[in-house]
Design a protein around this nucleic acid. Structure first.
Lengths: 175, 175
DNA sequence: GTCCGCATGTAACTTGTTACATGATTTA
DNA sequence: TAAATCATGTAACAAGTTACATGCGGAC
């Protein structure tokens, strides 16, 4: 599963991270996080300290153990399954002959808008957080490169939406 | 789930389709297919005829029922969750500081090669099967557009791999 | 007085993967 | 004689989603 107990934190804080930056490339619900943390704990890869709080239930501040750090390094250096696209929109497009073309075009437009918004967001991150990429090293460089990947994919998707909309539109009868 | 019982066929034949064309955008194992077919059957969306064969077990030739065709049209016209990237390689890159940079670069190169090969394959499909896209309509057009999406994403991924390899390489010490 | 943020969890369900099992025919 | 192709399935597991549950403090 996941391993962003790189810096100590609570399950909730990890969830925050997912909804922010890294969540654009890998998401998880809080239930998944808590389950995973529990599992990692039984495997001895993380330790935690219960921090009592006024009123609220205890916080569990998790931290990587030595064996956890070792496991993380091994995971990072191990090969990954090459990325495999799994896009429902493509499947629908393929089956589009069974539906109203105008509805499909409308749906493609909707996706186009969503990907445009995401792309804009990523480009703002890029401009604000990494004004000069040539000086980046280490963690910051890696974060930047991941963001660049997001920009590349969103751009490709957006261009594809345009191509599809144009092609379908051109085949509409009265127009 | 899936709905490519568009034309009648056996579970096995559907599996073949997945390993060929559409499998590049949505894959399923044969177990999943059989389970789904069984479910669709209990829901009355498909019917089948058992065709006895010499030696081999019976073939089950599935076909969409009227309500299945209706459900398919509804599915095609219903909105989809916008595509969400889920790429483990990006997560690893983000955590790359915990591993040997040369191992990471090697892994990126491996992915680069895989995506290059896929892109070449798709481009061959494009050249051989759709020499003149401007005349396409209906099902063939949709198939072509899906293929174009695959090309777009593979190209983007490939370019990203190059960018990452270059950036990481430039930061290696002795070199 | 109701919603939002912090903080954690259980339970049930759906989806997807892996392993195992059968058994004939054709190809190398 | 070993493998690949055709053709179907059961069982167990892993991963991911959705619903439900608790409970305080602060903002509106």
């Amino acid at each position: 599963m996941v391993s962003l107990a790189e810096r100590p934190g609570t399950g909730y804080e990890i969830g925050q991270q997912f909804t922010r930056s890294i969540g654009h490339f890998w998401s998880a619900t809080h239930q998944q996080i808590y389950r995973t943390l529990k599992k990692l704990h039984t495997e001895g890869l993380v330790t935690f300290e219960s921090v009592p709080q006024d009123g609220r239930p205890d916080k569990k501040v998790y931290q990587l153990s030595d064996s956890g750090r070792k496991a993380l390094r091994e995971w990072v250096e191990s090969p990954v399954e090459p990325y495999h696209l799994r896009d429902e929109l493509s499947v629908k497009l393929r089956a589009a002959e069974h539906g109203d073309p105008r509805v499909i075009i409308e749906e493609m437009r909707r996706h186009r808008e969503i990907h445009t918004a995401r792309l804009r967001l990523y480009q703002e991150f890029e401009k604000d957080d990494y004004p000069d990429p040539s000086v980046l090293t280490g963690r910051r460089l890696n974060q930047y490169l991941v963001l660049r990947g997001g920009i590349a994919v969103q751009t490709a998707f957006l261009d594809w939406c345009d191509e599809v909309i144009d092609a379908l539109q051109a085949r509409l009868p009265h127009n």
